[in-house]
Design a protein around this nucleic acid. Sequence first.
DNA 1: ATGAAAGCGCTAACAG
DNA 2: CTGTTAGCGCTTTCAT
Lengths: 336, 336
Amino acid sequence: MALAPGRNATIEDVALAAGVSRAAVSKVLRDAYGVSDSMRERVTAAMTELNYRPRIAARAMRGRTFTIGIEIPVLGNQFFTRMLSGAMHALADTRYQVVIAPAEEKSRQGLRAIEALVDRQVDGVIAVSPRVTPEALERIAAHTPVVMFGRHDNSEAYDTVAGDDVVGAKAAMAHLLELGHTKIAHLTLPESDEEHESPHGLRLQTYVGEMERAGLAGEILVIRTDEGQDAAYRTLRDALREGAEPTAVFAAHDELAIGALHAVAEADRPISVVGYDDVPIASHPALGLTTVDQPGDEMGARAIQLLLERVGGRTDAVHEVFEPQLRVRTSTTPPA
Amino acid sequence: MALAPGRNATIEDVALAAGVSRAAVSKVLRDAYGVSDSMRERVTAAMTELNYRPRIAARAMRGRTFTIGIEIPVLGNQFFTRMLSGAMHALADTRYQVVIAPAEEKSRQGLRAIEALVDRQVDGVIAVSPRVTPEALERIAAHTPVVMFGRHDNSEAYDTVAGDDVVGAKAAMAHLLELGHTKIAHLTLPESDEEHESPHGLRLQTYVGEMERAGLAGEILVIRTDEGQDAAYRTLRDALREGAEPTAVFAAHDELAIGALHAVAEADRPISVVGYDDVPIASHPALGLTTVDQPGDEMGARAIQLLLERVGGRTDAVHEVFEPQLRVRTSTTPPA
DNA sequence: ATGAAAGCGCTAACAG
DNA sequence: CTGTTAGCGCTTTCAT
């Protein structure tokens, strides 16, 4: 214990204890070329002896941090949990560590969170930010590899991983139309969430398009709500009280759909509800939420894979699209 | 644009552009004492001009990183979401940034994630790790402020914020006993999750104690399951198939309770279920889960407050306990 | 195979 | 009020 109390061991301490140079320690740390077995042994011994842990911040000033940053807009949405678990899984056997930065509640654009990550020298960023401009992302992507999750914009500077929202929304609408619904409302987020080829924007456009195609342009009803189950519940409850009479609601994602189910249960009217994502709770028999399954874990894993490729040097953009799948459950029935 | 392409602006670039010294720039950055208005102006102008962002890693080598690390064991549990949103809220108007490190699925002890955070020079850590030893935590807390969430151990080295699990579990049991249940099972996590004064350990002990106190020692039935709704569902389903005949299940937390509700729905037997935490979905009318409400957001906010106090220099330990509250809903009824 | 030394971008004395 | 300078702990040529 040649250590001053209150101070953690540094590479210097290890070098001293092992009787070698700092460079040598650094080499065994990164198992770089050119270390004899005997040296490696002594150094390793000294490291465990001193309980040495390399300071990533110091390393950051020269090389990699082996940290991947993931920005998500809301913590509550279980779809992101699926994505994250796929991502973590993909990174499980690597030296990389995941850190998550949730966007603040207020200015939910997420740009601040992404920049906070970049400021902390992550090796790459995965972000879910429908509202950040491509320009801002390109500025960031010029220095740090970026994969955007859920977006469909075609930048050359960053990759994207998204579900096919048009196909998914069409499946949801086809299901409701086949059941015989005509008064189908769409429950979605505020308009500001629709920019930049966002999932919700596409789902909305598809809803409108399919209604028109079915000759139901006159029945189009778009209900806007804030993020979250509870806000969705309140919004739909109020809309129903104020005279809206849909027989079916297509929600932009499952959190909203679950809130909708709450309002429907209270209103005691037979209104079908379709969600999007297939979060774990959707298949619970108490909810039985019909929804569009997106393979969140696969998408998360793929996002990591693309990001690591970029960290490894790839510079041309890849834009990947995953096929969603309708899951029919009890929350949808023919209109009364 | 005196910048080499592909390189981000540094404090040096800003100093050059503004025609001042690096120290001056650093000062306006941290708005330290001793900067004239004119200098501040020129420097600020240069910073925006060059799109300058300080590298936290470099700052980390001298001072604070203004980063708080939060370690959580599982992403899926919505109670942690409540805690996180309380924590983020408490930090909203400060310079601090939150980063979250989820423990890996496999070795879920969380120590690795905590250390990953510390290696990245966070100014303080909030962690939810029932299975990490106090010794390991004390070693970490010697250099980095730590607040443990959910634990009841009485270390001098770190603070704790927890719910009163004994009171909560007693309330749950009293409710079931008052309804007339005698065959009450307890659904909880594997034994390894009970160490170090963990919430689940205390809830289990209280369950056993209350059963004995009610003269029901012979009816004690502890069912162990892995983490997660789905695992809980499968475990209880199998237990019911194999002959277990409880009329009520007290689950160690809501995720497990929701899985239990699934199994109960399938078994088509009138089994009451009580959870713990009161996650947002618990109050959904489709579930109507009776549960013990813990003020997760308040607890998260308090954890931040304590952590910032420690960052600010406090060294004596604070151990805070929050009172839970039973929420009776439709998932509990008298036995048939 | 090993070590010496330069430097990453920032902060914090300290001088002026 | 402003600038000089010495590091923080690590990686990385470049000698040896």
